[in-house]
């Protein structure tokens, strides 16, 4: 099955999750996600482990944006690599802050989408 957005993520080598596709500045180590064509020259492409800590999450109760089918749980997550990203969680539960999460690929309307779920 195809990835919905192959510019953002790829299957992890362990087959259990997803990695996020980022850029790293070799001089400073600064990360850029998503990979931006407007980033400073000389950036190297890196794959970030999809493991993260949940900072906060909320449930969207209304179809407030295109593509949002409520209830949808949206989270702010700090990747182990340091970056903070917003992502959609698997399911409708709201895990508490600090919960260990990982990026996974789930089928959504005929393509694989990136979601986050609590590590077992």
């Amino acid at each position: 099955m195809e990835l919905r957005e192959p510019r953002l993520y790829a299957p992890a080598e362990d087959g259990k999750g997803a990695v996020l596709l980022a850029l790293r500045d070799p001089a400073t180590g600064a990360l850029t996600f998503p990979r931006s064509p407007h980033a400073a020259p000389g950036q190297e492409e890196v794959e970030l482990d999809g493991k993260a800590a949940l900072l906060a999450c909320i449930t969207l109760h209304q179809p407030v944006l295109p593509g949002v089918v409520p209830p949808l749980v949206v989270a702010r997550l700090q990747l182990d690599a340091g970056l903070v990203v917003d992502g959609v969680l698997v399911g409708t539960a709201e895990p508490p802050p600090g919960t260990r999460m990982r990026a996974v690929l789930v089928e959504q309307d005929g393509a694989l989408d990136c979601r986050f779920q609590a590590l077992a």
Binding site: Y9, P34, C57, I58, G87
Partner: peptide, 20 residues
């Protein structure tokens, strides 16, 4: 640029997360 979530840059989501 693609986004992980369609709610990226939504003020509503930003402030709901801030409230939490």
């Amino acid at each position: 640029l693609p986004r992980l979530s369609t709610t990226d840059h939504s003020p509503l989501v930003e402030f709901a997360l801030l409230a939490r």
